[in-house]
Nucleic acid binder design. Structure first.
Lengths: 215, 215
DNA sequence: GCATTTTAGACCACACTGGTCAATAGGCCT
DNA sequence: AGGCCTATTGACCAGTGTGGTCTAAAATGC
């Protein structure tokens, strides 16, 4: 799997157009049903070029896996700061990082989600392993160094952690659903962040201990 | 769109096999990329029969929409009892009904979710409208006749309702994810229900007021 | 044994597939 | 200008899969 150097000589914009067209097509249709014709059409390049840069559909797919894993590591996981011991604050930070990552790389997450389900093409084990490592890292980034004493003592803290996490995912999913058909770059997200922070406050109120000292 | 009477004369089992094969294929691939060849293969019938019972791919699709809407109304919504004013108990009941419905009709929900996204075939408006009505009904069944005085007063009750709902969806999604590749009919769900009820208790503890009288 | 209904799958024209390649366009050096 | 190299296109290829048809056989009922 070797990518032709000339691909990297393209304008960054053109590279991105090609990558995004491919990610989208694969994410939406899976490896087998994805059409290279659709990809070149959406990318606005001639058919020949796709096979000149990448040698085959399969190589393109493998390249994309690599690309997405790299991007996700650098632009998502490495930006999460695990020094924050307050779980809700941690999740807030993660949400902010995730939002930036998602706006910048709209199809990466969808693609990564779909590549695991792929059964048509046997992906080299190294890729699957790297993906597993990402998942493990995701747990670390979530739970490492969390101060559990903040939580009220009359409920199981691990259950509380889970419930909080699901609550936040739920908000995010609902938001994604609402904004599905809109052009993300024209949206002012401030009110949504405000709403989100409101929910976070509720979570703190109900799951955390009452502070003992004065505030 | 008229279905050949002879379809209804089939054993119920065969009818179900055909319907499920079709639901699965459409749900997984969307209208256009779904293959009638795959459907007949999975259903174990000859190609001719599919077009004998239903006249065309399109008619089959419309029949399935109808079928799923009916099933969902009868086997899901009509079984939800809105007399229970305790929100968490209501959700518990819904979860139980939903589980039965899902086990009995594994592909119906997926199919209904995918048919809305369909853009290839313009589905008659009546179908979309019925779907909208289902969604509206779903809100009714969820929130109608809920006793809001159970909730603690230091947080916004509507936010609390949402958060509880998302928590429960989160648990369900995680469970579905875990069990994805297993044969559902061989699973003993009791421990999962126990775990689920454990989470519900936590939700009551944190979101409800402390009871004032003795218990 | 006959008439009717079910059934299977070979078959059809056609659309689309991943991939190739000859022709060309464009930049750069002399 | 001309030569050279790389970048680029899209017509083209054989092959596969498409929704749908139809013939001929099997099953059913009488």
């Amino acid at each position: 799997m070797e990518i032709n150097q000339s691909f990297y000589n393209l304008d960054i914009d053109k590279q991105k157009r090609i990558i995004e067209a491919a990610l989208k097509e694969f994410a939406e249709n899976g490896y087998e049903k994805a059409s290279t014709n659709q990809i070149v059409k959406n990318a606005g390049i001639g058919k020949g070029m796709l096979f000149y840069y990448f040698n085959s559909k399969e190589d393109l797919y493998l390249f994309l896996i690599n690309y997405c894993l790299d991007i996700t590591m650098v632009e998502f996981f490495q930006r999460i700061d695990t020094n924050e011991p307050d779980f809700v604050e941690r999740l807030k930070q993660i949400a902010e990082v995730k939002a930036k990552y998602h706006l910048k790389n709209p199809y990466v997450l969808n693609f990564l989600g779909s590549f695991i389900l792929n059964e048509a093409l046997e992906v080299p084990k190294a890729y699957r392993k790297r993906y597993e490592e990402l998942l493990a890292l995701s747990n670390l980034k979530l739970y490492e160094n969390i101060d559990k004493t903040l939580f009220r003592k009359d409920v199981d803290t691990d259950k509380a952690l889970k419930l909080i996490q699901w609550s936040i995912e739920g908000y995010q999913n609902e938001l994604i659903n609402q904004l599905k058909n809109q052009n993300l770059s024209t949206i002012n997200f401030d009110p949504y962040w405000a709403e989100f922070y409101g929910y976070l406050e509720v979570l703190k109120t109900v799951y955390y201990q009452k502070e003992e000292g004065a505030k």
